[in-house]
């Protein structure tokens, strides 16, 4: 060490413990070296950037008007809003109980809507889109996923109720909406809790014949839908397959085993006309 300049010594230490190629095995933050016992500046700031992106995803407010417009433009569906009892983001984060309830105002409006349009009621599928903990997930993936889903539902001859959009709601909120629409299967597209590796991951929860007091055991979840996770096509196929199974078996939830394969779905699609 004696013969090295301060800068050279510093570089030596930074490269210490950086095992060549170790980080090709995992996305975990390894082979990052150290400065004394601490992280190096670059790694610390990289971490902060990913953290900031995750926080921003939580605080970013869903642009409902734009989302409704995008859905109207790309599909032939009617789109409406519904709200929970949550008034602020802070309340959304600390009062999950309020995020599960539908506001009286929204409830009244949807009931009126369904009275005027009785064909909205008792369809096969209801789609509820919710920002959840990552509005970015919805802004980045919801429209694309809906556009993969609807053609598959059409192939299956499944009828679809209008699409409902909400922000700052929890998963059980969709059951409250479906208490009005009474679709056989309610599907909730919702933003997941953001992590450092992905801040816009989306999940799909679905419940067969939901009730206002349905619990998690009656729901299934397809998670991890984002750029480096499950693709829209994979997610849409998996959901269609599991929905078919739920219709066939008459239940969803923990008892509904995920034995999806795209071959199984192809077979169902080929003999599809009798379904539902």
């Amino acid at each position: 060490m004696k013969n090295l300049s301060i800068k050279e010594q510093h570089i030596t230490q930074q490269n210490d413990r950086v095992v060549p190629n170790l980080n090709k095995f995992t996305n975990a933050r390894i082979a990052i070296g150290h400065s004394g016992g601490h992280t190096r500046t670059k790694n610390w700031l990289d971490f902060q950037l990913d953290f900031a992106a995750a926080k921003d995803a939580v605080y970013n407010e869903l642009n409902i008007a734009k989302l409704m417009e995008d859905i109207r433009q790309t599909t032939d569906r009617n789109v409406y809003q519904a709200h929970s009892l949550v008034a602020t983001l802070d309340q959304f984060l600390t009062r999950p109980d309020l995020g599960r309830q539908i506001s009286n105002d929204s409830r009244e409006k949807l009931i009126q809507l369904c009275t005027k349009n009785p064909e909205f009621i008792a369809q096969d599928i209801l789609i509820v889109i919710s920002s959840g903990l990552s509005s970015l997930a919805i802004e980045n993936h919801a429209v694309a996923l809906v556009n993969e889903l609807l053609p598959l539902f059409t192939k299956m001859n499944w009828s679809v109720a209008p699409i409902i959009i909400s922000k700052q709601t929890r998963v059980a909120f969709a059951d409250k909406v479906n208490d009005i629409f009474k679709a056989k299967l309610v599907i909730n597209l919702i933003g997941e809790r953001p992590g450092l590796s992905s801040n816009d991951s989306m999940s799909i929860y679905f419940t067969y014949k939901s009730k206002i007091n349905s619990t998690d055991e009656q729901r299934n979840c397809i998670s991890n839908i984002h750029r480096n996770g499950l693709s829209y096509t994979q997610a849409a196929q998996k959901l269609t397959y599991l929905a078919y199974r739920a219709f066939e078996l008459g239940y969803s939830g923990v008892q509904l085993k995920d034995d999806f394969s795209s071959t199984a779905l192809q077979q169902i699609l080929l003999g599809v006309d009798h379904v539902s």
Partner: peptide, 24 residues
């Protein structure tokens, strides 16, 4: 946890480096 970031559970905890900091 490598770099404080648990890539499976999606939360942040203390890193290998943090323990060294505390020990030192």
């Amino acid at each position: 946890i490598p770099g404080s970031d648990d890539i499976m559970l999606n939360y942040q905890s203390t890193s290998f480096h943090d323990a060294i900091y505390l020990r030192n």
